[in-house]
Design a protein around this nucleic acid. Structure first.
Length: 422
DNA sequence: TCTGGGGTCCTAGGACCC
DNA sequence: TCTGGGGTCCTAGGACCC
């Protein structure tokens, strides 16, 4: 008998975070926009009821927003990250171990709690999270992660579950799986769903009953494991130690298109600066660095170009000035004049903990530069992102993001902590 | 007309996730 | 005019080796 796994998932997470500090958003349609205020990435129940879909471009929604008085917020990831810490803290007393799967989902290892009424246990957990954060959640319980995801989706969709669905019972499982569409299953995307549909497989129950060998033929080992998980055979454990990262990226769309190399270098320098900061935060160094930029792919009638170049970093480094130099080398080789660029980014690969990095013969004394980087991080952390900048980042920054409707840093900047008036 | 048989390592690209 | 950002995993195929 395998030990039960639960998935707790925050409902409409970004919207719920915004509502936690702004009661005017409660009970009305609310959407949160992606970076650059580009498209809707979170919707309240009321906004979903108005037909707003995940990823709908904001500029297509203008009429709807006006007509229904939909409240709009730019995304505020600092707030969402900080709220997640509070959700995790609320879970601790209820689990043996856990895995943070995404910004709004946590897998819970319920081993050792089997003797309890796990549904009641899950309700108590939801209650605790609600009291500590005012974030509403749903919980799915099952023998495998895939089934726990599915249970969670069922808990969200079917009011009769009251927020907690337990799929350990074969009867309940059959009812849920036989009506659950394949393309809503965790790990089945559009391409796989189409292949399965061609075989007449359109429900989770039918996919579960597919022979493992056939599943491998259709969708490699990934689909084979997924079918096993649907059968209740765990192929994916709750991972309680955070795996070391393999790569990192800093990419952005521009507020307005860029045409000149200096402007592009300004953006790329900023991204490289930020990439170095992320490496240093995680205590890592990178061995490979890539730059890319491209024109607007949503406008195929306009001249298109996508450029990308990589370079090795030796010695491996987290030094932002080294990364900026690498960005310039790559950008010069990839650059073409005469295009309207709308997005660019830098990618870091071959990451290694800084203490494990290979030493090179001619490395010299890196301590002064480390101190400089630490000082820059300190200044920017304390006084705001663009306090200490390199000259190449520029001062005009016409490429900067739009973020016109961002909520304050309620929980992470002292000046913006909300005040309560009696 | 015939044109080895394995290995390994790396990269690009597809598919998927939130 | 305006369409996000940041990840993971897997496979095929090329380069290279003996």
């Amino acid at each position: 008998m395998t030990s039960p796994i639960a998935l707790i998932d925050c409902n409409n997470y970004y919207v719920s975070c915004e509502r936690a500090f702004d009661s005017s958003l409660v009970g009305v349609p609310v959407i949160v926009l992606s970076n650059n205020d580009g498209c809707a990435i979170a919707r309240s129940a009321e906004a979903k009821a108005l037909g707003i879909k995940m990823g709908d471009p904001a500029h297509h929604l203008r009429d709807l927003i006006r007509q229904h008085g939909i409240k709009v917020r730019s995304s505020n990831y600092t707030l969402y990250g900080d709220m997640q810490r509070r959700v995790v803290a609320a879970c601790l007393a209820f689990v043996r171990d856990f895995e943070i799967y995404s910004i709004d989902e946590i897998f819970l290892d319920f081993a050792g709690f089997e003797e309890r009424d796990l549904v009641a246990h899950a309700h108590a957990l939801r209650q605790r999270v609600w009291r500590w954060t005012t974030i509403p959640t749903c919980v799915g319980i099952a023998p495998t992660k895939t089934l726990a995801k599915l249970a969670n989706a069922a808990a969200k969709r079917r009011p009769e579950f009251g927020g907690v669905a337990d799929l350990r019972d074969a009867g309940v499982r059959e009812v849920v799986l036989s009506t659950f569409p394949t393309d809503d299953i965790w790990g089945v995307g559009g391409a796989t769903a189409r292949k399965l549909a061609d075989l007449g497989i359109t429900t989770a129950a039918a996919l579960r009953d597919m022979p493992l060998k056939q599943a491998r033929g259709v969708g490699t080992v990934v689909l084979e494991r997924l079918v096993a998980e649907l059968q209740g055979i765990p192929a994916d454990a709750v991972e309680t130690v955070e795996p070391t990262r393999k790569g990192m990226a800093v990419t952005r769309s521009f507020g307005t298109p860029l045409h000149d190399f200096d402007g592009m270098m300004g953006a790329l320098s900023q991204y490289a600066m930020r990439a170095g900061e992320k490496l240093r935060q995680h205590g890592l160094v990178a061995g490979r660095f890539t730059v890319f930029f491209h024109t607007n792919r949503h406008k195929p009638d306009r001249p298109q170009y996508a450029g990308s170049r990589s370079t090795s970093l030796h010695p491996m480094t987290s030094d932002s000035l080294e990364l900026i130099a690498a960005a310039r080398r790559c950008a010069e080789r990839a650059w073409r004049d005469g295009y309207a660029y709308t997005k660019a980014g830098v990618l870091l690969d071959d990451l290694l903990p800084a203490e494990q990095r290979p030493r090179t013969l001619f490395e010299g004394d890196t301590a002064p530069r480390s101190r400089l980087m630490a000082a820059i991080d300190e200044v920017n952390g304390r006084f705001g992102k663009f306090t200490a900048v390199t000259a190449s980042q520029g001062f005009r920054r016409q490429w900067r993001l739009r973020s016109d409707m961002r909520s304050p840093a309620w929980t992470t900047r002292l000046e913006e902590v909300p005040t309560v008036r009696a």
